[in-house]
Write a protein that binds this DNA or RNA. Structure first.
Lengths: 270, 270
DNA sequence: CTTGACCTTGACGCACGGTCAGGGCTGCAC
DNA sequence: GTGCAGCCCTGACCGTGCGTCAAGGTCAAG
């Protein structure tokens, strides 16, 4: 007769596992000797090895219970089921590996590669880190909501950033990082923003269907922008005096014509 | 400002998950409004998306914590580490799948295919089910202890089973299933067992090195055998009268020459 | 005022044991 | 006899990553 540790070592499991199987009814409690110790026979070893075989093969313990008692047909069906779930798990893990592989540096965390490339380009062109960060965070949000539209929007952004006027505008906005709302450069900046929007509207015409950035997301992006650039509040005020509302999705105030899709995207600077 | 449900839906997680991240310190607790509700800003969405990105990629939450704060180098190292563990997991699961695939019918549970084939042959030859069961269980035990020796032992067993004298002996032992220790056939059976062992010893000569079935395992197998065939106790007694001890590893009593490896294996009938 | 949809904290549950804590038994050496 | 090492016992908490229920408080609309 075997003690619990002998049983465990025969089957290659821990004593704790044996007692666990007892507690869940997988392995029947054996007789006890005069001092209360469990005493096992060879059949217990066999049962335990079978349990481990099933468990090692990935079957949940709960099913192991039925499987030990099952006939050939049920058993075969159950094996197939377990196998299917193993396949699924493997597929998931392989997907995880691919995702992990794309997580190279900080910027690419949660971002598609087009956006990473765009942020790289911003760095090359000397944009302020603060501006790049808010841009990155904004695109994380957008990519999470509209993954299928990111590529198209990015193409436009890439084109824009090579446009000298707009680039100059971005650089100057980046310099506003720590300025106060009363900074003297603000009115001129508002004029330049307005001029650019008008020019863009004239150049690309009007398009009603644009990327469906929702009003809520727009508000969130605006809020993130003013959070990063406190004086942006003032800039937006100045633009409202000139008849524009919003920032991410900047438009003519109320009765004026709605902006085009292109200006929507083009005017996203943060 | 966002409520917890809005935050959760932006990042594609459940409210419960958000609160869980708070509780483990992954996501900082935001401000509360006048009625105690949590209020989030865009930065929280970004952090949450990053957390999910890492978690979806298979990083454990505990590490996610560090990863969010890590620099590029640590991050790259950590990613590699996670990837390695994913690979390991995949390898394990694939091994599980192979094992599962071998679990076709009852006999093969925890048994290598050679043994399954042997049990099949026993069935074909008309051995009693009881004998086949104890044989199967014995081999489960042996395979668990000495997986590398099973193939060699099985080769010998396969040869033995085709030997007419031994086969006849096995068949008769199988018929003892429900007999009493006083069954009149016992002495003759003991004589035949002895004769066979002697013949086998003469035929194969003596070999000192055999498969290392330990004394404990031998005792266990003997115990399992007498458990299944109660009258085996009597048979072993009769053999002891004739100068033999044990069963699985049957040998000359004390001073007599030790058995050869071949007889050890050959005499394993259960 | 009611209703239903939201929010809060707290706690249990899952699978599979690991790891104490607190105590008893056994056998061997001194 | 006594001390020690090495077994054994039960009971209970720990960890993962949340799901789910309980028992409320809050908010906006009808």
């Amino acid at each position: 007769m075997l003690t619990i540790s002998q049983l465990a070592s025969y089957a290659g499991v821990t004593i704790r596992a044996v007692r666990h199987y007892h507690s869940v009814g997988l392995l029947p409690e054996p007789q006890r000797d005069h001092s209360g110790y469990r005493r096992y026979d060879a059949a217990a070893v066999v049962t335990l090895i079978k349990i481990r075989t099933l468990a090692d093969a990935g079957a949940p313990l709960s099913r192991t219970h039925e499987l030990l008692a099952a006939g050939e047909d049920e058993f075969a069906a159950a094996v197939e089921d377990i196998d299917r779930r193993l396949r699924d798990k493997i597929r998931d893990l392989q997907r995880h590996r691919k995702q992990i592989a794309q997580l190279a540096a900080g910027d690419s965390l949660a971002l598609p590669p087009e956006v990473v490339a765009y942020l790289e380009r911003m760095r090359e062109l000397g944009f302020s880190e603060r501006l790049i960060e808010i841009e990155r965070d904004s695109w994380i949000l957008i990519a999470a909501q509209l993954p299928d539209h990111v590529a198209a929007m990015m193409a436009i952004k890439h084109a824009q950033i090579e446009h000298p006027t707009l680039r100059r505008l971005y650089l100057d906005i980046g310099d506003l990082a720590d300025c106060t709302p009363t900074d003297p450069r603000m009115p001129a900046l508002a004029d330049r923003v307005e001029a650019f929007i008008k020019a863009a509207g004239a150049e690309f015409g009007e398009v009603d269907e644009g990327p469906p950035i929702s009003a809520e997301l727009t508000a969130l992006l605006d809020a993130a922008f003013v959070e990063t650039f406190p004086c942006a509040t003032r800039l937006i005020e100045l633009l409202e005096e000139r008849g524009w509302t919003g920032w991410t999705n900047i438009r003519r105030t109320d009765h004026a014509r709605t902006s085009t899709a292109c200006t929507e995207v083009e005017s996203r600077t943060a």
